[in-house]
Design a protein around this nucleic acid. Structure first.
Lengths: 200, 200
DNA sequence: CTCGTAACTTACTTCGAGTAACCTACTGCG
DNA sequence: CGCAGTAGGTTACTCGAAGTAAGTTACGAG
């Protein structure tokens, strides 16, 4: 089997087992066995157990970024940006329930570099939100814009975890809940600027 | 040294080392050495490495609950409840920066039962917020109330992590940021009920 | 002064991450 | 055809850390 294909297969299997049992409780031998290969192959391709975990996270991160970027491409107003971005996020989670637990909760603790990888996902999100906000209210305090983005990301992430326990709450409703709480606050902020003018 | 005192000391040392190096990178021998005791003592009192971690989290959780409960005791309006609760939370984090990283980021990944312990902290918080909300708007959809509480907790938690990278943002400002985003949304919700009447 | 027990230690076993060294089958080329 | 080089693979180890068994010391009660 060619390398690229084998690597992809390893990531898929690892993601699944990590999500099932947790990072710590999973042994490399077990993953190797389920892939149908021997342990040194995993080390050949990923360097370490940590490397394998990071590989899983990185792949998911890339996928999430692509999905989100696609979703918000056509948005016209800040509200639409936010709503479409949130929806894309919740839909992504919905389709990756298993690996989601891994990404957020498993990865964070395990290893510093995995931590960074997870933070990278959040960074993607906060950057995007910050950029949108700044584009509509150019004179906003940068610190406040950052805080705002963090708040949105935190709220969204947490609600995503919550929806795992509430299967009846789908991506659409989750989006509504988040928008319902944060949108009035954002709108109030935006209205301080009557025009989205560039007044430098 | 009596058992209770020794246990407290172990928790303090463990919290510190876990926070410094991460859970995985810390060995029980190392903790034992820094406590000035041998490894089996740790096992005697905490059963396992995981048990020790859970002990750390549990202690912090108890402390946080007490501080928060005290802080909101005198609140008269929902806004005051929220504000005082948030402030107490951010102040707690501010005073426990080191162990905070452990709680959230280390613990979550490491072990399922530590996970539960961390979720317990969030449960405490969401329950409290849910109760406040329900007391002021008795006819709110229970699901929406839950979602709201999760959103607030997620936003707050995330902002707490963020403030670690922004030392200039103290508890008071962090509270303002969170209130600024979520309060308008909550107020809008509350106003749908002109009276906090029981209309069953 | 000796019995019991709380607090503690030394010296293991076991298990899993990571590695060294070796194997095999295919692909291109004289 | 036959042989060289390499991609993809394996077996069989080392080593470090979690967890444990069995024993030791100090000290207060009878």
């Amino acid at each position: 089997m060619p390398k690229a294909q084998r690597m992809a297969q390893m990531l898929t299997v690892a993601e699944e087992i990590f999500a099932e049992q947790g990072y710590l409780a999973t042994s490399m031998d077990e993953i190797a066995e389920r892939v149908g290969v021997s342990k040194p192959m995993l080390y050949e391709y990923f360097g370490s157990k940590e490397g394998l975990l990071i590989g899983c996270i990185h792949r998911a991160r890339t996928e999430l970024r692509e999905k989100t970027a696609q979703a918000i491409a056509g948005a016209q107003s800040p509200e639409e940006f936010l709503r479409l971005g949130l929806l894309a996020f919740f839909e992504f989670i919905d389709q990756h329930r298993r690996s989601w637990a891994l990404l957020r909760q498993e990865a964070a603790v395990a290893v510093p570099s995995a931590q960074e990888e997870v933070e990278g996902i959040r960074q993607q999100q906060t950057d995007m939100i910050g950029a949108v906000l700044a584009s509509f209210t150019p004179d906003i305090d940068p610190l406040e814009a950052e805080a705002f983005a963090e708040i949105v990301v935190g709220a969204t992430e947490r609600l995503a975890v919550w929806t795992e326990r509430r299967p009846k709450v789908g991506p659409a409703l989750a989006t509504e809940y988040v928008m319902g709480v944060i949108w009035p606050g954002v709108e109030a902020r935006l209205k301080k600027l009557p025009e989205p003018a560039q007044h430098a």
